[in-house]
Amino acid sequence: MLFSVPKTGSTAMEVALKPWADIAFYKHRKHTPVGRYHRKIAPFLREAYALEPETMAVIRAPLEHLRSWYRYRASTLPVDFDGFVQAVLSPSPPDWARIGNQLSFLTKPDGVLGITHLFTYESQPVLRGWLCSRMSAHITFKPQNVSPHVATPITPDTLAFFDAQYADEIELHARATAAGGHLETRS
């Protein structure tokens, strides 16, 4: 089961993997977080079909993840990238800065990583190689929903604040990177 973490190339993966999908969630359920899956979908699959699928997701370098969100929304934002990061980190972000974070998306309510395979966005060949092996087929991703390039400078103070606030997510991405771009876990 592929978890579609927003801004990690999940649409391209979904399009490429559609021929092998037995179940696909679209529109409002596309970005179902891991916690909701373990509360609602996993019990249903177990009870109704005796299935316990392996799960996978992609994590992007956290600052690059915010840069992708900013590029996606830049044409409608009242701030530059530094202001966007500050808004995301504020205690009460405005609607345009409520993007959630990858760590919350990937963990169960108890804070435990809730997937079997975590790949880094920056290690696309590792991800594609693993999928090709699992599907016994050549799989390619065609870019989807690519945002235009926009400058994303950040001040040292904002970067330091970001690093402190996102330390756990940065550490998870670093663990997956250190594992060669594929962190195998037990959910």
Rank of each mutant, 00 (worst) to 15 (best):
Q165Y: 06
Q165E: 14
F141V: 15
D110Q: 02
I170Q: 15
K18Y: 06
R186Y: 02
S92L: 03
F84W: 08
P33R: 06
T32V: 14
W20T: 09
V112D: 07
D168F: 08
A178D: 10
T8F: 01
P148N: 09
L51E: 13
A24M: 04
F105E: 01
W20H: 05
A167W: 11
L159E: 15
P62L: 03
R175A: 02
T140H: 10
H31Y: 01
L89N: 13
K40A: 12
A174K: 14
T155R: 07
S68K: 04
V34P: 00
S75N: 10
I41S: 04
A174C: 08
L89V: 07
V15N: 12
V150A: 03
A87L: 04
G9A: 07
F84L: 12
H65T: 09
T177I: 07
S92Q: 12
K30T: 13
T155K: 05
S10C: 05
L159T: 10
V5G: 00
A137C: 03
L183H: 09
P19L: 02
G111N: 06
Y166P: 03
Y37T: 06
C132E: 14
S75I: 14
K27C: 01
P33V: 14
K27T: 12
R128N: 06
P19H: 08
G181D: 03
